[in-house]
Design a binder for these strands. Sequence first.
DNA 1: GTTCCCATGTAACCCGTTACATGATTTT
DNA 2: AAAATCATGTAACGGGTTACATGGGAAC
Lengths: 189, 189
Amino acid sequence: MDRLPTTSYALLGLLLPSPMSGYELSSRVGKSIANFWPIARSQVYRELARLEALDYLRGADVVQDRVPDKRVYEVTPAGKAAVEAWLADPDVRRERFRSTLLVKIFFADHIPPDRLDTLLKGCRQRAEREAARLAAIAASLEGKPGLDAPRATALHGLHHMRATLAWLDEVEPMLRRVSARQPFGGEGR
Amino acid sequence: MDRLPTTSYALLGLLLPSPMSGYELSSRVGKSIANFWPIARSQVYRELARLEALDYLRGADVVQDRVPDKRVYEVTPAGKAAVEAWLADPDVRRERFRSTLLVKIFFADHIPPDRLDTLLKGCRQRAEREAARLAAIAASLEGKPGLDAPRATALHGLHHMRATLAWLDEVEPMLRRVSARQPFGGEGR
DNA sequence: GTTCCCATGTAACCCGTTACATGATTTT
DNA sequence: AAAATCATGTAACGGGTTACATGGGAAC
């Protein structure tokens, strides 16, 4: 009864409504939770094998013609119980946040002004694009009662992209000063 | 000239001002970039070894009494050039965002109402605590001209914690409805 | 009729995390 | 005097990512 990683429970959860093959499951991931929990296809297969060994899933080979044969997995009662127990546990210690961008910003006084400009402009552009994308998703889910929970995750992303834009507005002038203040070109002295 | 992970450049950057041992560097990480780029101590040592092998660092053994001997590393010209080239590169494809919380929220319709309540309350509490902590850091750095860049990273966190709180305000009622709508207890039929 | 995409999966590498080791100092 | 912390580091496990493999359709 050892603790599995988030990925395992995420896949179990996605399999709850209907059985799927690894390939189908992987593309399902891409259309649902990949925004906040990406899972590589190869990892899906590994997880499926493990979850089957734990009797959380039962797999069945399906022979196909024209396309390769596949193995479809369905959640067992034990698997359903496991994912529901995990969901009911309010512990989210495994939260993380990593940002390469912030590492670069932290060292902004070592970035030439024009490069910093490119960096910030790119960041703003991505945030705008992403905000638009997420707003569209949230709008498309509005009013569909069964999809309120997915919609809430899209709104989370939207709020955070707006926060990024507001942050950029606040710190851009400050960072430009930091970068401009630095002497570049004299590597020795 | 292969691409190194973010961690390598982050450590190089922290070593730019002054040479340090792995232990010192690790605690330096804890007081600076750990908020958005945590690095385990054991990984610091591995990176130091690699960066020395690449001639980005030069290490020197220092004998001490009372405390264990140590090895202090200083950045070589090649190392400085490498980290500055990395900083000047506006590519941040290695960005990631993962949230176990959002995975649970995505499956909110499988969480009993009282558990969902605990989950959201805990999330709100952590966000408030974290916002206060980051606001204090940002305030303590205000006006110190050499520390504008670190302050910008703290402000990023602050904006995002506030975004989380605003998001919670928006989606809490919706999620409670989702959870309350679900039938619990009937596991078979 | 090559070239790209679909549908399935396997193999290998490497970063990140957790656990282990150790002896001196400070705290309780 | 026992327990916690400091100041160094090493070892091992495992999740996540990237690259490899394959053979049939679809597109150009």
